[in-house]
Amino acid sequence: MNNDVINAAVAVIGVPAVLVGYILLTERLIQALPERRQGRLRPWFWIAPALLFLIVFLIYPTLNTLVLSFMDAQSRNFVGLDNYAWFIQDRGTLEALRNSVLWVVFMTGGVVGLGLLIAVLVDRIRYEPVAKSVIFLPLAISFVAAGVIWSFMYQYQDPSRPQVGTLNALIGLVGLGPIRWTQEQPINNFALIFIGIWMWTGFAMVILSAGLKGISTEVLEAARVDGANEWQVFRRIILPLLLPTMFVVSTTIIITALKSFDIIFTVTNGGFGTNVIALEMWKQMFTPPGNFGRASAVAIVLLLAIIPFMAINIRRFREQEAIR
């Protein structure tokens, strides 16, 4: 234990010190060169540590996973497209794929829709900062904690006993339920997705709210003076102006939804028809005996699903740079 503390302290102080030392040392070496070559060489020394980390932990592994996805369980022999053939034929993976699509559609719709609604509503009230903090709060906690929080919300008791889960007690007040929220299909998938919505709405709200504040008050007032009602102001002015921002937020949420793993891992562990691609990959990898070929193929499918959004991200970034 003590040893660990010392190691961590060494890392916190030592690594930055080594980095600074590295930059100062290379600067000494560069200074010895002729002026023209200094400027050419220096940037490469500065970005080298970052590039090294990116290559080792992101670029090389991703390419390697691609290769592994064409190999067998122990990564010994090439098996061609077998793992992908398994993926599109296996009922389990297809179910996971379907659930991932549900996550993408409903989590993105829920997060962006609610985020927009809340951003527009709180713009009109005095306790806006408090309301925003409350909605934003879940973003700071872990998916695991959120899973625990919501497993208490969704808790189910036999109808003969009093319901201790908040939701079942609530619907019990009007004579409904109780419902097995995390087990009954298809409700359980939506129950899990709502946890994701609960966590990420604050993210969409903060960005959309910042965009909303950027719309000039004069434009809105002018529309109101001209007799537009609040719905028309929203529909004709606010919505079109916020559309690009909503698009950006959506791509982020889509990627988050595709990668979602922790909530499902904590609450149902993929049981009762709630499996998703990201969790399926983990299962292939670690359910003995472990199949690295299939796990890699699942990871590559996930990556392929994300690539279009990555392309959008890059194009948007390029456009942003052009007006900079």
Binding site: L54, T62, L258, M281, W282, A299
Partner: peptide, 13 residues
């Protein structure tokens, strides 16, 4: 572009 690479695609290597 690397921003969106899923962790999962790097785990095994």
């Amino acid at each position: 572009g690397l921003l969106v690479i899923p962790l999962q695609s790097t785990l095994i290597p």
